[in-house]
Design a protein around this nucleic acid. Structure first.
Length: 580
DNA sequence: CGTCTTTGACCTGCGC
DNA sequence: GCGCAGGTCAAAGACG
């Protein structure tokens, strides 16, 4: 190496080539401060500007570059033209070294090139040179593509790991909450009996009615279950005091329902095969995950849309398992369960509205426990987001009283005709009405205080089968040719907005007061649905899905026909349960 | 033959 | 306790 090629690492982020003499017509243009005491010249390649570039490769001719990992060397060369050395443009791009091995590899490439006989180097203008240059660039592009693919794989792996960790942490949190809840249950129960007797005595003395108290559901369920049960309790006519004590109807209901759920969804039972043993084992303690699942199943999302079809296509596979005539509705109600995976707990009920039979009411319940096809993801994620937010938002206030208005504002801050929350139903239900005509004045961003400022989950990646990942509603939009771009762009926009709000408005974290608000994934997804633009897109997509197969439906929301979204405090939506 | 739908029976919660 | 209503099961039939 008479030419003195070498590589110098001055420090961790500074690297350059040095040479004793110009090589192959390249003017390495060392800066004065890069001359070394030993006669070598230092050519830093760590600059973003063009003047500090010092990269060499051969053959000369055209723009040459040597790609060393993240490093992109551009040559500043002087090409003889009619005996005049003409300086061509050069510029540097990324020059951040990450791996010395990569640097060494690149160095070998450079030295190998520079070690070739100069006679083999043409003037860079011949067809061979053009072809070679093109091949070089193609090879470089391929290297870059491989590097990007590797990076993509790495990011996907990280995403999967994060999702798994999130699920594990969530389950751990629920378990801890459960243990803490159970540990306090005994002492609390005794204390509540004392308190109750004290209150009864007080009421008897005052002659006033006994005010129903809000008790935590002492059933072995997560706090979320308690909160939702409270919600149901609040709208029940009977006194919660009786239920809190022994043999309360409500707790019997919970136990019975959980018992049924345990029969249907316990890990021991495969799929929907009945499990008589579990059915009879009414005293068995149900696992925490079953309680959580039971809680999730309580929340429902009802979608009203106009359709002549017996069922809207949401991308999932369903199997009908029952049909009943509901009171007050001449149209039968059909019961479906998801058959895309064995044991998927998601069910839906389909029924036509009694008032307007062109309206199809689809009520979703539960969360898919399996990856969803792209066509099903939009529907799934949105309904699950609504359900999750319903559960997360159904937190008692400091005084223990539920506020349904808070729920309505939280889930769909701008919803009025579009979405309502029925807390009086046996299950907390969010109803998305996609049959309304639009009101452009209502398409404004929701009040900031009702937005949940959490970063968005990376839902644009391949679906990761995490049990708690919101999956229920609306992902039929996802990747369906008409709407994939719509939803993805909306999500990214919302992600940026939400993240920005998160950093700029720390007070918006107030809803995190309850542990379930730490469920950032669901909350974030709920925040997406809280965005009127998203709900509009959702409504448009669902309507279009329906309309796509039934072109005769003209009075429905389309991408150009957004439904209304504003606030409603309606406590009694036109749900799919006319009898309620 | 396997899958899906139909449909009557059964279970459970809740109101009276 | 009884009846009603919602929800589910499971056998039977239909279908490809």
């Amino acid at each position: 190496m008479d030419r003195g090629w070498g590589l110098t690492l001055e420090n961790s982020d500074r690297v350059g080539f040095f040479a004793k003499e110009p090589v192959f017509g390249f003017n390495l243009s060392p800066r004065l401060d890069h001359h070394r005491s030993d006669g070598l010249m230092m050519f830093p390649v760590n600059s973003g500007a063009g003047e500090d570039n010092a990269a060499v490769s051969s053959p000369p001719g055209g723009e040459q570059r040597v790609v060393l990992g993240e490093v992109d060397f551009f040559a500043e060369k002087k090409k003889p033209v009619n005996g005049v050395v003409k300086k061509e443009t050069s510029h540097a791009e990324t020059s951040t070294f990450r791996d010395v091995d990569v640097i060494n590899t690149g160095l070998q490439l450079v030295t190998a090139n520079t070690g070739s006989d100069q006679s083999t180097v043409d003037d860079g203008m011949s067809p061979d040179s053009e072809d070679k240059r093109a091949r070089n660039e193609l090879a470089q592009l391929q290297v870059e593509l491989e590097r990007m693919n590797a990076e993509n794989q790495r990011l996907r792996g990280m995403l999967t790991q994060v999702s798994n960790n999130y699920s594990a942490l969530q389950m751990h949190l629920i378990t801890l909450m459960q243990q803490q809840h159970n540990s306090r249950a005994d002492s609390t129960q005794e204390q509540e009996v004392v308190d109750r007797k004290s209150e009864e005595t007080k009421s008897a003395v005052n002659g006033g009615p006994i005010v129903p108290r809000q008790f935590l559901d002492l059933a072995p369920a997560a706090v979320a279950a308690a909160a939702v049960s409270q919600m149901a309790d609040e709208h029940s006519n009977s006194s919660s005091e009786e239920r809190t004590l022994s043999g309360s109807p409500h707790n019997n209901t919970e136990l019975s329902r959980n018992k049924r759920i345990g029969r249907e969804e316990s890990p021991e039972s495969e799929g929907w095969a009945p499990n008589k043993a579990l059915k009879l084992n009414s005293n068995s303690t149900k696992p925490v995950d079953q309680s959580a699942e039971a809680t999730m199943r309580k929340a429902r999302v009802s979608v009203r849309a106009r359709s002549e079809a017996p069922m809207i296509s949401d991308g999932c596979q369903w199997r009908k398992y029952g049909q009943k005539m509901a009171k007050g509705n001449p149209c039968p109600r059909a019961y479906y369960r998801c058959t895309m995976a064995v044991g998927c707990p998601v069910r839906k009920q389909v029924q036509r509205c009694a008032d307007d039979r062109t309206i199809l009411i689809t009520t979703y319940e539960g969360t898919h426990n399996h990856p969803l096809p792209p066509a099903a993801m939009a529907m799934a994620s949105t309904t699950s987001a609504a359900a999750n937010m319903l559960l997360s938002g159904s937190m008692p206030s400091a005084d223990g009283v539920m506020n349904p208005n808070f729920l309505a504002r939280t889930i769909l801050p701008c919803s009025s005709n579009m979405a309502t929350i029925s807390a009086s139903a046996p299950f907390p239900t969010v109803t998305l009405d996609l049959t309304q005509t639009p009101n452009p004045l209502q398409f404004q961003r929701p009040p900031a205080q009702f937005q949940v400022p959490f970063p968005l989950p990376p839902q644009n990646f391949a679906p990761v089968p995490t049990p708690s990942v919101p999956q229920v509603f609306g992902q039929a939009l996802y990747n369906q040719s008409k709407f994939s771009g719509l939803q993805m762009s909306q999500e990214s926009t919302d992600a940026a907005q939400l993240q920005g709000q998160s950093s700029q408005h720390p007070q918006l974290h107030q809803p995190q007061a309850h542990p379930l608000f730490s469920d950032t994934l669901s909350a974030a997804t709920a925040a997406i649905t809280a965005d009127p633009n998203f709900t509009a897109a959702l409504a448009a997509a669902i309507s279009s899905i329906i309309g796509g197969s039934h072109q005769n439906n003209t009075n429905q929301s389309t991408p150009n026909n957004h439904p209304n979204v504003n606030t409603s405090n309606s406590n009694k939506s036109c749900s799919s349960f006319p009898g309620n």
